[in-house]
Design a protein around this nucleic acid. Structure first.
Length: 452
RNA sequence: GGCCCUAUCGUCUAUCGGUUAGGACACAAGCUUUUCAAGCUUGGAAGCGGGGUUCGACUCCCCGUAGGGUCACCA
């Protein structure tokens, strides 16, 4: 039998990474066995549900590539006729009854529908946890609907799972104690029983429930930070599940191939963005240079500005690539561009600013010798043809001289002359990016500073 | 508090009675022909405690302890 599974998010907030992970496990399980994956929007709480959040949920699933099957998108708010039928039937057969109430809070009804609890022991098999048993006596005759048109969560879930022929309920561990009362309702309406798999929670670094105060918790935030959807999918899959091999980088197709409910973990797992970053960089390494370049350009424009010319962008892209930033997320790239301060010395009109002392290499104190080294470097570089002013040629030409007198004594002041910074890519790269004229100009400026 | 679930390096995890307890992220050190980053190499790092069962327990059972979940006219 082909499995039919569902993810049932409630549109009361942006799609949470925990819900996304539950959706992913459902999706992988369905795809693996040629089954059906359904999205069911649980919006029976009209007060808290909004259209915007529903849109966010759709957008997030879409971005992650978790697509539901044809006709597999439902809203509980549009199914009240179905619920009404069941509620009436339950009242009729005595598994539920209308109950007079004393409203405690505003909005509460004076008359609600309660489930007639048979007060029995419920035992069910959970695919990840084994046998779980509850005594439902303490649940009492719990409320299942405000009115025949307004079912509450537990009732709506059971009716929908039954109507949609759900075979496996794969959901978060926080629902495990909801299961017995849902089984009770199933018995009340004569529904077939799905199999259960309660997956562990995603935790914050302090092992508490992952919430907004811990930083980014919604899928959309990770999208905005520039993570690749397949990287987030890959990471989420590894939180609470593993294939039993040492392979860690997966495409979604590979996950479908490997996935099995039996390998799901029991304990909760802390969400570690550092590992997500690493997985993201591994996925980026498989990307075409075209899309890598597109991301880099976006990051550069966002940090330095929109009015950059082609040459300037190319120069900074080059630096970003050399600094290993091409495999980072856009937000990490932006951080890097900011931190490295390339806009201070890599734009057409920028002149690096630095103190005279910065030009001194380590213990070197002899002003004359630094000037001598810079002048010599200048002479050597001016020999190179302007059109052949490449990284390799610059390096080659200056290599022997710097070797004779000590590399640092020549290379350090050159690098400072070009960048004005303590940290930067090497002087050969900078010189080739700057071009011959600008390179020589900057050496002259450095000499001038030393002479002043 | 009642009920339920869980428990291996800082983190994610492998181990389904016999292993020098393995891998990855992170971290540290060294190397990489100037700084930073990257890269490479190396290293430190774990079975919550106590009882059983067994020739032998991380692994099975019990009791503690700790963490989490849940106890709505929310989902």
């Amino acid at each position: 039998m082909k499995p039919i599974v569902r993810i049932a998010p409630s549109p009361t907030g942006n799609l949470h990474v925990g819900t996304a992970r539950t959706a992913l496990f459902n999706f992988l399980f369905a795809k693996k066995h040629g089954g059906t994956f359904i999205v069911r929007i649980e919006d029976t709480d009209r007060e808290r549900s909004t259209k915007e959040y529903e849109e966010n949920i759709k957008e997030s699933f879409n971005w992650l590539g978790l697509s539901y099957n044809e006709g597999g998108y439902h809203r509980q708010s549009e199914r009240s006729d179905i619920y009404k039928k069941y509620i009436e039937k339950m009242i009729e057969n005595g598994s539920a009854f209308v109950s007079k109430e004393e409203p405690k809070n505003e909005g509460e009804r004076a008359e609600v529908i309660r489930f007639k609890n048979p007060n029995k022991k419920i035992i069910f098999e959970d695919i990840v946890r084994g046998t779980v048993s509850f005594d439902t006596t303490e649940l009492g005759d719990f409320v299942i609907a405000r009115s025949p048109e307004e079912p509450l969560y537990h009732l709506a879930v059971v009716i929908d799972d039954h109507e949609m022929n759900i075979t496996h309920v794969i959901r978060g561990e926080d629902h495990i104690s909801n299961t017995p009362r849902q089984i009770l309702i199933q018995e009340g309406i004569g529904a077939k029983k799905p199999l259960y798999a309660h997956i562990p929670m995603i935790l914050a670094p302090d092992r508490s429930k992952l919430s907004k105060r811990h930083g980014a918790v919604s899928v959309i935030e990770y999208k905005e930070k520039g993570y690749l959807p397949e990287a987030l999918i890959n990471y989420l899959a590894l939180l609470g599940w593993n294939p039993g091999t040492e392979k860690e980088i997966f495409t979604t197709e590979e996950l479908v191939e490997e996935f099995s409910l039996e390998k799901i973990q029991k304990g909760g797992a802390i969400f570690d963005e550092e590992k997500l970053k690493w997985i993201n960089s591994e996925h980026k390494k498989k990307l075409s240079t075209d899309s890598l370049n597109k991301d880099m350009k976006t990051a550069i424009r966002e940090v330095i500005g929109d009015n950059l010319n082609k040459m300037e962008i190319a120069r900074i892209m080059n630096l970003l690539e050399i600094s290993g930033g091409q495999y980072s997320t856009i937000s990490q790239q932006k951080e890097l561009i900011e931190k490295e301060g390339w806009k201070d010395y890599m734009l057409d009109n920028s002149k690096p600013r630095y103190s005279k002392e910065l030009l001194y290499w380590k213990e070197e104190k002899d002003l004359e010798s630094i000037i001598r080294h810079l002048e010599k470097a200048r002479d050597i570089l001016s020999e190179i043809d302007e059109k052949k002013f490449s990284n390799e040629n610059v390096k080659q030409s200056i290599w022997d001289y710097s070797g004779e007198v000590g590399r640092g004594f020549v290379l350090w002041p050159l690098r400072v002359a070009f960048s004005g910074k303590e940290k930067s890519p090497d002087p050969f790269v900078l010189a080739s990016l700057l071009g011959k004229k600008e390179t020589l100009d900057r050496i002259d400026s450095a000499i001038k500073i030393l002479n002043s």
